[in-house]
Design a protein around this nucleic acid. Structure first.
Lengths: 158, 158
DNA sequence: GTCAGTGCAAACTTTTTGCAACTAC
DNA sequence: GTAGTTGCAAAAAGTTTGCACTGAC
């Protein structure tokens, strides 16, 4: 895990007179070990695998804290809640496959700049999330193969 | 409710040999009576108020159907799931107050056009949702008043 | 008359809460 | 030592499911 991330948590805990517990740092480290989105269950499993069994309550508490510190972001998707390590990001764009649920980042400075420069009515923006829905190329290919098989079968039975 | 909306449901049910039940149309009508986002509970309450008590299972079933038909959209927010009547929209932008949870639409052709024209890697887009987080002007004002009060008190006690 | 759709209750999943025990300070 | 945290279990909230009954066709 990046030292930077640990330091942010450490500093925040000091400044707010909160305790530097082993659990908080273990959860943060685990969260930053995934190179993509993870679920609460996956996080719990990883920690158990690392011989650090932890209660759900503590996981939820820690993640709530990390969210506030912008050390992670939380996606409430149709297929359930996913978390993602993301240092101090206040704008994020993701593409989500509606078939397999895969989530990947989109990098676009144009989108960011347009959104930040949008004039909002009676509102003060401090972050945004963009979710693009559709199908990943894997699922498109899978669907095409399936369609081809069905067409063949139809031809054969005719 | 717009005749158009009813017709879309009606046609879909016919084409898919599904039944035109009183419940489905009552739920659709209720969903389109809100002029803003609504929760499942609010929808149930409205229907009860209209002397049309309905079970949660049927509500979930109906809303799932309407989602598929793009007659409503579903927002999974931190403060819970909210639904919204929205006819055949496949791109939507909303601003969400992180204090009071108020959701309002953002109308921006620039954002839409930029997102639709973004080249995505290994992905075929068919819709998107943009969520802008921050504070609505009501909550900004409330916070300012609170801060002023606290400052006054601090001055008096000094 | 038939079977898709509904109501109800139970099950299940996800998240929160209350409280005793623990431990970082 | 003590108050902030944790673990556990129970509760709450949100959603899905199984099954008997109903009503749209």
């Amino acid at each position: 895990m990046k030292k930077e991330v640990k330091d942010i948590l450490s500093k925040y805990l000091e400044q707010n007179k909160m305790r530097k517990t082993v659990e908080r740092f273990a959860v943060l480290d685990a969260a930053y070990s995934f190179d993509t989105c993870f679920t609460m269950e996956e996080l719990k499993t990883l920690l158990e695998y690392r011989s650090f069994p932890i209660s759900r309550a503590t996981l939820y508490n820690s993640l709530k804290l990390f969210k506030r510190l912008k050390l992670i972001i939380c996606h409430k998707l149709q297929q359930g809640t996913k978390y993602e390590a993301a240092l101090s990001i206040n704008s994020n764009c993701h593409q989500i496959c509606t078939l397999c649920g895969k989530v990947s980042k989109i990098d676009s400075k144009e989108i960011s700049s347009i959104v930040w420069n949008t004039r909002l009515k009676r509102f003060h923006m401090d972050s945004f999330s963009l979710y693009v829905y559709g199908m990943c190329s894997n699922c498109v290919a899978k669907q095409t193969r399936k369609r081809n098989r069905n067409n063949k079968r139809r031809v054969q039975t005719n």
